[in-house]
Simulated assay, not measured.
Amino acid sequence: MLPEEIVALEELRGICLALPEVEERLSHGEPTWFIRGKRTFVMFCNHHHGKRLGFWCPAADGVQELRIEQDPDTFYSPPYVGVRGWLGVNLDDDPDWEDVEEIVRDAYRKVAPKTLAARLD
């Protein structure tokens, strides 16, 4: 992994692991974060399927389309899970880490049991 890829992974890892009851393990060869060891809410994407460095996560209804429309260089519909509303986020072009944190927290809220999601508020 290149140094900028390591930095992006470490930033994303810090955001994900700061959330309640999150653990990391490899899934499909990439670092992936799970809630209570079961529910995936963020998958790191290191040039998977020709895409750029980034991550995939579930998004609320309509968010994927809106984000892609607003900034198609940063956001995309990822393979396999894009049809279910997941959002692909590129991290290889000076990402806005505050926005990334908000996206990750929203993905967590979408997937987490209500009792855990409530702990974010």
Rank of each mutant, 00 (worst) to 15 (best):
L17S: 12
R119G: 04
E10S: 08
H49D: 10
T32C: 10
P31Y: 00
A107C: 09
C16M: 09
I15A: 03
V111T: 13
L116W: 09
E102I: 00
A60Q: 12
T74K: 14
A112N: 05
V7A: 13
D99S: 03
D99Q: 11
T40Q: 04
D99Y: 02
G29S: 14
E11L: 00
E11T: 02
E98G: 04
P79A: 13
N46M: 04
R39Q: 13
D71R: 06
M1H: 12
R36K: 15
W97H: 09
R13G: 11
Y80D: 03
H49N: 11
K114R: 14
P58F: 01
L120E: 01
F55N: 11
A117E: 09
I6Q: 15
W33C: 01
R52G: 15
T115P: 01
F41W: 09
V22H: 14
E102V: 07
V111K: 07
Q64G: 02
L53Q: 04
N46S: 13
H47S: 09
N46R: 10
Q64M: 04
A59F: 00
V42M: 08
E5C: 08
F44M: 06
D92T: 06
W86T: 10
R25N: 11
P20C: 07
M43H: 03
R67S: 07
G50T: 13
T115K: 12
R109D: 08
D93C: 04
D94C: 03
V22S: 11
G37E: 08
V63C: 03
G54P: 01
G29A: 11
A60F: 03
I103C: 02
W56E: 11
A18I: 00
R52L: 05
V42C: 11
P3A: 15
Y76P: 03
V100G: 05
Y80S: 03
F55K: 09
H48W: 05
R52A: 13
P20V: 08
R36P: 00
L53D: 13
C16A: 14
R13S: 09
R39C: 02
G37H: 09
P78T: 04
